[in-house]
């Protein structure tokens, strides 16, 4: 049975602000190219961490939606 992919529910256990702050901290002092490269590496790592190709593809679609 297909389970709908839930991209919305918070899974950070109340620590969103910690994660967000760590993300910005990692970008501090980087020029735009270095920042974009950091983001690319991070996305690839998180893609593998998600461990679910269908979920990753759904996430890509959600992010691409404008």
């Amino acid at each position: 049975m297909m389970v709908p992919i839930d991209l919305s529910t918070d899974r950070l256990g109340g620590r969103s602000d910690d994660v967000y702050a760590a993300l910005l901290h990692a970008h501090e002092g980087l020029d735009p190219d270095a920042s974009a490269a950091l983001n690319a590496r991070l996305i690839l790592i998180l893609t593998n961490l998600a461990g679910d190709p269908d979920a990753v593809i759904a996430a890509i679609a959600a992010a691409a939606k404008r």
């Binding site: 919305s8 918070d10 950070l12 602000d17 967000y20 993300l23 970008h27 920042s35």
Partner: peptide, 23 residues
Amino acid sequence: DMERIFRNAAIELAADHGFARRM
């Protein structure tokens, strides 16, 4: 610029995604 990009991304995602509202 990168802080602004992340900030705006979180705000834009927040309309549809609960997790982003927390950010």
